[in-house]
Design a protein around this nucleic acid. Structure first.
Length: 600
RNA sequence: GCACCCAUAGCUCAAUUGGAUAGAGCGUCUGACUACGGAUCAGAAGGUUGGGGGUUCAAAUCCCUCUGGGUGCACCA
């Protein structure tokens, strides 16, 4: 949906410049008029003058002259190549929130632009519980999926669980030696935390042994822990366990199954709390051998080559060479990813595949995509690594081994408690405690956390300050939720008083203040914000938009009375304006997977 | 050593992808309810966009260079 006067401007300019070559979907771009300038919107001719083949300044004058005589336009002022336009309220609202149905549908892409998109995210290890870093991944992934769906794409979310390898054996070995056969239930712990504790225990025993080793053999003092891993008894035992697992040793496999099931149960609780859902979960224990055959086939075709020692390698030009099969024929990480990618493509036949994975793996994915291109996969150009930065703490980086991680479940609990505390403070001592206090606190707490993580561009390394980040004031989720709650409150009161705000009864020309018109202009930007978030795979665009809209509303709310408006018709119009804001904010928050409490 | 990414207000982040006077929040200071919800609103202070050069009507954004950070360069995942 665009402003009618701009469509007319486009037509008039096209007639004036018949030689102009415009794309079929070309629309005159417009921006919000900056504060201090007179107008509702700005047409920046610098941006598109070349489309009409004339100088920006000249085109601006033409546009100003044309718009001057448009029936929807109140006033026009031209500054350099900028044309500032004030619109008549009835025209502005007619093209904007007077038709909410249309406005909402406009956020959906036209059918020929919709795609089938597979998104892989989360990808946890089953040896420890998830921490803040995983939370960022999960929130980025689930919101991306949801926003893309809202924009009209068909999206398939999948998970690839890292359930095998030496790190899994570490927690298994520690459990075998020190667990005494107890279960998470007996210990009263969530399964993933229970297993994670044994992983920590393993590392403790390992460093103890390394310390002793270094004391006994001073020549090893400069060696790193990783280098000494196989020098230790416990390291060798873990390595043996991995071999036993790969050979299908019944006792090892049985313990592995049991411990994994504990972890899965724990993860499921964490996922449910966040609202994470996958259409399919791949297990690396099932996929880790995939790819070997493919590599062999392509070796035969001459696409890959064999190194002197027998290992199979790929020549990736600038990226260097990459080993795909070890000399003993076993597969490596990227072999598995080649196989899994082919499998995912075969099973789901997507137009686009996205991996939400941290930016330390940028090179890995460049290599993976190059390899698939070399293999001649026709779809290898539509693969995308959505890389995101780390989450740092004021004290520095999070490190599992050093115990400086922020645990996901603990963080959720903390957010919940903070929200509860804030809610109770607002209610005061006298009021009775609302029935839905827990549910409300959960929605506000999780909303604040998700919003905070989505506020930043995914690729940036973010700083998470537990003290500062968890406030509910300013640019936060609760700020936006609060606007919805306020409008809900107005809606309840309106209903009590039997006030109706049916759109057909509204006289929009009554909303002629800057605050009211600004909301109408903002509403027009919703479709762009949502689509742009989906296209750029960056939810922060939508987050920033929702904050902007919420701020506009609060300015309006301070300035103008709704239910106590000076006139019945004004009241109706303002009420309709409130509902429009609430509808957009709710739709946007829902797209980000953030819920809205009835009251706060 | 090589490659990629980053550097913007005291702090955390934006800037419609090259466009008007670089904007928000937090923090600091000053104000605003006899009001439909104060998790709110209005205002002030705070900037040579890390330094230097270049490209043009126009640079935080593009190119070169220097400085300071991060990540990767495993037959780990």
């Amino acid at each position: 949906m665009n402003l009618k006067c701009l469509e007319q401007l486009k037509k008039a300019l096209s007639e004036k410049h018949p030689q102009a070559k415009l794309a079929s979907d070309f629309a005159i771009p417009w921006e919000m008029c900056p504060a201090g300038m007179d107008g509702d919107i700005t047409v920046n001719c610098f941006r598109f003058a070349r489309n009409f083949g004339c100088a920006p300044d000249v085109l601006a004058q033409e546009a100003a002259d044309i718009l001057q005589n448009n029936e929807d336009v109140q006033a026009v002022s031209k500054v350099k190549a900028f044309v500032n336009v004030s619109l008549k309220p009835q025209a502005l609202f007619r093209d904007s929130i007077a038709n909410m149905d249309r406005l909402m549908k406009d956020a959906v892409l036209p059918e020929n632009q919709r795609k089938r998109i597979l998104v892989e995210y989360s990808a946890p290890n089953t040896n420890k519980p998830q921490h803040l870093g995983h939370v960022r991944n999960n929130v980025l992934g689930m919101s991306l999926v949801s926003v893309m769906q809202r924009a009209g794409h068909q999206v398939i979310p999948v998970n690839l669980v890292n359930d095998r390898g030496i790190h899994i054996c570490k927690s298994m070995l520690a459990y075998k030696r020190c667990g005494n056969g107890i279960t998470p239930e007996q210990a009263g712990k969530k399964g993933d935390h229970f297993v994670g504790d044994f992983y920590v225990l393993f590392n403790k025993m390992l460093s103890e042994e390394i310390k002793q080793l270094k004391e006994a053999r001073p020549e090893l003092a400069d060696q790193s822990s990783d280098e000494l891993f196989l020098e230790t008894e416990i390291g060798q035992a873990a390595q043996k366990m991995l071999r036993d697992w790969e050979n299908g040793d019944p006792e090892t496999v049985s313990l592995w199954k049991t411990m994994n099931s504990w972890v899965f149960k724990g993860f499921q609780q964490t996922y449910e709390r966040m609202g994470v859902h996958f259409d399919k979960t791949y297990l690396e224990s099932n996929t880790y051998l995939l790819g070997k055959e493919t590599v062999s086939e392509n070796l035969a075709k001459g696409i890959f080559s064999r190194r002197e020692d027998g290992a199979v390698i790929a020549d990736l030009g600038k990226l260097g060479t990459k080993v795909l099969l070890r000399k003993d024929g076993t597969s490596v990480y990227i072999t598995q990813d080649i196989g899994t990618t082919l499998l995912k493509h075969k099973e789901h036949n997507p137009d686009v595949m996205i991996w939400v994975v941290g930016d330390e793996q940028i090179l890995h994915f460049q290599m993976l995509f190059t390899i698939l291109k070399k293999m001649g996969c026709p779809w290898a150009d539509s693969l995308y690594h959505l890389s995101y930065g780390m989450v740092n703490l004021p004290s520095g980086k999070m490190k599992s081994r050093e115990g400086t991680v922020v645990d996901a479940d603990d963080l959720f609990d903390e957010m919940h408690e903070l929200a509860k505390k804030a809610t109770l403070e607002r209610l005061g001592d006298t009021a009775e405690i609302p029935e839905d206090l827990e549910k409300r606190s959960e929605i506000i707490g999780m909303g604040a956390l998700k919003f905070m993580l989505l506020k930043f561009n995914p690729k940036t390394t973010i700083m998470f300050d537990p003290q500062a980040s968890l406030k509910f004031e300013g640019d936060t989720g609760p700020y936006v939720q609060y606007v919805c709650a306020r409008i809900n409150s107005i809606a309840r009161k309106a209903q009590e008083r039997g006030i109706d705000a049916a759109p057909e009864k509204v006289d929009w020309s009554l909303l002629d203040s800057p605050e009211e018109k600004e909301i109408a202009v903002m509403a027009l930007r919703y479709q762009t914000a949502l689509r742009s978030s989906a296209e750029k795979m960056d939810c922060s665009v939508l987050v920033a938009y929702l904050l902007d809209l919420a701020k506009c509303f609060n300015r309006f709310y301070r300035e103008k009375q709704v239910l106590n408006a000076e006139d019945e018709n004004v009241r109706t119009a303002r009420l309709a304006l409130c509902f429009a804001v609430r509808d957009i904010l709710s739709d946007g928050l829902r797209a980000l997977t953030i819920q809205i409490p009835e009251a706060m």
